[in-house]
């Protein structure tokens, strides 16, 4: 380590007034009171959530907002996922559970018999979306999900497909290219 790399940090010397502490308290109280009585500041800062959210203001970036997952359907209405387990592997918190089965359709080998995502465990990182080779799993702009029990928050295949139906108007499925699968 060179000498000029060393940065010497010292506590700043306090002035006499600062050592007394009382003037500092006075300054602090002034600041507190200023904010306390400033309705203008308050109204500028606060947005009332359900009435005035980014959804209602149309500020949500639909393309890359990371909300609840959906499972896309291909144009034939079949689940687009090919059960390659890439997303389950990529997921940093292991919250995707897939059971693969032999596909009934000739154009692919496998399809997911079960597809569960634990939405409580998910950290909404979007890794699954990145990993998917057929763009079957995607994160939607929908963020206000609630449930009464933990089990309710484990979304299964039907629910994920249903979310696709709900959100496809808002965020249509991108052209799934890479693999040529539908």
């Amino acid at each position: 380590m060179r000498d000029e790399d060393v940065i010497e940090l010292r506590e700043p010397e306090l002035s006499a007034a600062e050592r007394l502490y009382l003037p500092q308290i006075w300054d602090g109280v002034k600041c507190t009171v200023r904010h306390m009585f400033s309705i203008k500041l308050r109204n500028e800062t606060v947005r009332q959530y359900p009435e005035d959210s980014r959804d209602t203001r149309g500020e949500v970036r639909v393309a890359n907002y990371r909300g609840v997952h959906r499972l896309n359907k291909d144009p034939d209405g079949r689940v687009a996922c090919v059960a390659c387990l890439m997303c389950a592997t990529a997921c940093p918190v292991n919250c995707i559970h897939i059971e693969a089965g032999e596909s009934p359709w000739p154009d692919r080998e496998k399809y997911p018999v079960k597809f569960d995502i634990d939405e409580l465990r998910c950290i909404y990182c979007g890794m699954c979306e990145e990993a998917c080779p057929v763009d079957a799993i995607e994160l939607t702009p929908q963020h206000d999900l609630v449930g009464r029990t933990r089990d309710e928050m484990i979304f299964d295949k039907e629910k994920l497909l249903h979310i696709y139906e709900e959100t496809k108007a808002l965020k249509p499925r991108k052209n799934p290219a890479i693999t040529g699968y539908g």
Partner: peptide, 26 residues
Amino acid sequence: MLAYAARSKTSITGRQGNMPDVDVRP
């Protein structure tokens, strides 16, 4: 009291009271 506190080296809350004068250079 204020004059005494302002003159004394240590603040009333002891912020710099026990700071050792160390040389941090390796």
